[in-house]
Simulated scan of single mutants.
Amino acid sequence: MRTPKRLALMPILLLLGVTGCSSPVTTGEAAQTPASTPVVKVNEKAAALVPAAVKSKGTLVFAMDASYAPFEFFDTDNTTITGFDANFSDAVAAAMGLKSQKVNTNFAAILPGLQAGKYDIGNSNFTITPEREKTVDFVPFMKSGSGLGVKKGNPENLSMDFASLCGHHVAAQTGTVQALTDLPELTAKCVSAGKPAIDVQLFATQNDANLALSSGRVDALMADSVGVAYQGEQSNGAFELVSGPLYKPSELGIALPKGSPLIPAVTEAVNGLIKDGTYAAIAKTWKLPVETLMTPGA
């Protein structure tokens, strides 16, 4: 079952936004780099839950794919990983009385890397799905859905209605929920309706998918709506997010190895950051829609 696979946060209200942001496009854009992560006080409850072995090491290793702005991407020095997930990872570690080490790796390799013990935590805009919950545990902290990126002005009149996508070339990043679930579902609907299948084209990074769209090799791309909107704004008019309802809104979460002893401490740290406003402040810095954020319950 899904519920016991995720440790519950404090009571929260989850609302779905209708706009979002996304990853950097390979068009030489200069993403707006904000100030560093806000100063975070140690959450004594979270720190007390940190396993002794981790406490003695003093550092948490976070894996992320730095090709997905505004969540994680390389700063102008092409070395420093920045973005919402990067800042939030720093804050989570600080709340636990630890330092953070951010490691860039291919998105599809993060969850297997967690299982293999290469990283402590995966924080790379992960949609929580039953399939993923079979191999890792999640601490949820946001809600979003899939969005469709199209050429400026939407000349093909595409939308999340499957019928409009049948027979078109649509890109996605390998290993994402869009590649694994959303596009296969939409393609099956096309075939069932007697229409041409969607030509799904997968790319190793979101940057590659963005470039395929901006260069005309595909008609559209699917990714997290927040990413698509942000990346579209940074693309110098190459593409934009289609307006309208998102596809399959779902929770996003921090991933940990199944049964990790870090889960209680991470959960307490995330709760505290939501409660004290640090989480909302980081989200505001990166212009994330407030409707996608978790807020403390009454």
Results as ranks from 00 to 15, higher is better:
192 S>H: 09
242 V>N: 00
170 V>P: 06
201 Q>T: 02
242 V>M: 05
244 G>P: 01
195 K>Y: 04
212 A>W: 07
217 R>D: 14
223 A>G: 08
245 P>H: 05
232 G>M: 04
194 G>I: 06
187 T>Y: 00
169 H>Q: 15
173 Q>T: 14
200 V>Y: 03
243 S>N: 06
228 V>T: 11
230 Y>T: 15
175 G>I: 07
178 Q>N: 14
215 S>H: 13
182 D>T: 13
174 T>R: 09
226 V>K: 12
209 A>E: 07
169 H>V: 11
197 A>Y: 01
243 S>I: 00
179 A>M: 03
196 P>R: 03
185 E>R: 14
234 Q>V: 04
237 G>H: 10
189 K>D: 05
184 P>V: 08
183 L>A: 00
188 A>V: 02
197 A>P: 03
222 M>S: 09
230 Y>R: 15
212 A>P: 08
226 V>L: 13
215 S>Q: 15
247 Y>E: 09
228 V>R: 07
214 S>A: 15
207 N>D: 13
252 L>S: 12
238 A>D: 12
199 D>M: 00
207 N>Y: 11
187 T>V: 04
190 C>Q: 01
198 I>A: 04
201 Q>S: 05
217 R>C: 13
228 V>Y: 05
212 A>G: 12
246 L>D: 07
181 T>Y: 09
235 S>F: 00
214 S>F: 14
197 A>K: 06
174 T>Q: 10
206 Q>Y: 11
213 L>P: 03
202 L>F: 03
180 L>C: 08
221 L>R: 01
235 S>I: 02
232 G>S: 03
246 L>W: 05
203 F>R: 06
246 L>R: 08
216 G>E: 11
250 S>C: 10
184 P>S: 10
215 S>I: 10
213 L>C: 07
187 T>Q: 07
223 A>W: 01
229 A>V: 06
211 L>S: 12
174 T>E: 09
201 Q>W: 02
189 K>R: 11
210 N>I: 02
187 T>L: 01
209 A>W: 01
203 F>A: 11
248 K>T: 10
233 E>N: 14
218 V>I: 13
192 S>C: 07
187 T>W: 00
234 Q>T: 04
248 K>P: 06
226 V>C: 12
228 V>P: 04
207 N>P: 05
178 Q>D: 15
174 T>V: 14
180 L>K: 13
